[in-house]
């Protein structure tokens, strides 16, 4: 099984780096969030405090655009180039294909996230020391959150098999799942709708990132992200199965 996953992973990573996708993703991922962080939100200098919390609070929104942009072609590209039939007939299971693709996309996001480590590292050298326990947790949470975003967009990509449709659909769903958590804080719900408030907070992708951005690992948040990945993986596999026979 691992050989199959490894082969697909290598193929995917190569295809990311052989095309311009990986570079565009990495360059924009560093450029746009950092400009937002430093010039619009004031970065670490506004609060004059060695903390990356503002950066990580912004991350769920940044992922809404960046991750669908990265993964929209996960299945659509295979369909357009006609390699999807080849993938289905290869001596690897669909699960291995999916896992290989997933890990490849996640690796790219991890590289992008790791590149932002320059901010705390340089600040630590020049201006003030960070709480590295908090930083580690923030990055760990960001990877988990990215994993769930990728799983959702992969599923939608397999559903539509079209680049633009996949991107629009993924971004829309991610917007809903991200901002739904803030609705419970922004809108005053009547008492009889309190359960809805709780439900919104529970299903939101961003609410579960709050603890990570503080520096706290809560098993419920970890389980939530893993749960999202598993469910969308399953749905993705079923869609692929239908496409294979349909």
């Amino acid at each position: 099984m691992f050989i199959g996953i490894w082969s697909i992973f290598k193929k995917e990573v190569k295809s990311y780096f052989n095309s311009s996708i990986a570079y565009i993703f990495l360059i924009l991922f560093l450029l746009i969030p950092n400009i937002l962080f430093f010039y619009i939100l004031g970065g670490i200098f506004k609060e004059n405090s060695a903390t990356m919390r503002t950066f990580f609070s912004m991350l769920p929104y940044v992922f809404i655009i960046f991750i669908p942009g990265l993964t929209m072609g996960a299945w659509a590209k295979e369909k357009n180039t006609g390699t999807i039939e080849l993938l289905f007939t290869l001596p690897v299971s669909q699960m291995e294909v999916l896992l290989g693709k997933f890990i490849a996309a996640l690796t790219l996001v991890i590289i992008a996230l790791a590149s932002t480590l320059a901010i705390p590292a340089l600040t630590d050298i020049f201006l003030g020391s960070f709480d590295w326990g908090q930083i580690r947790t923030q990055y760990f949470g960001a990877v988990l959150m990215a994993g769930s975003y990728i799983a959702i967009t992969f599923f939608l990509s397999s559903l539509t098999m079209e680049l633009i449709n996949s991107f629009l659909l993924s971004s829309s769903l991610l917007v809903i799942l991200t901002i739904i958590g803030y609705l419970s804080q922004a809108i005053k719900f009547p008492a009889f709708l309190d359960w809805l408030k709780v439900l919104f907070a529970q299903i939101s992708l961003s609410t579960h990132f709050t603890n990570f951005s503080k520096g706290v690992i809560d098993s419920r948040d970890v389980f939530y992200y893993i749960g999202i990945i598993v469910i969308f993986f399953y749905m993705n596999l079923q869609t692929l199965e239908n496409k294979k026979w349909g």
């Binding site: 990495l26 924009l28 560093l30 200098f45 932002t116 901010i119 340089l122 020049f126 201006l127």
Partner: peptide, 17 residues
């Protein structure tokens, strides 16, 4: 120092990529 941090993390890193 502030400019060094912003320049390296925001411009030099993407330039390296």
């Amino acid at each position: 120092r502030k400019n060094i941090i912003i320049s390296i993390s925001t411009y030099i890193m993407p330039l390296l990529f």
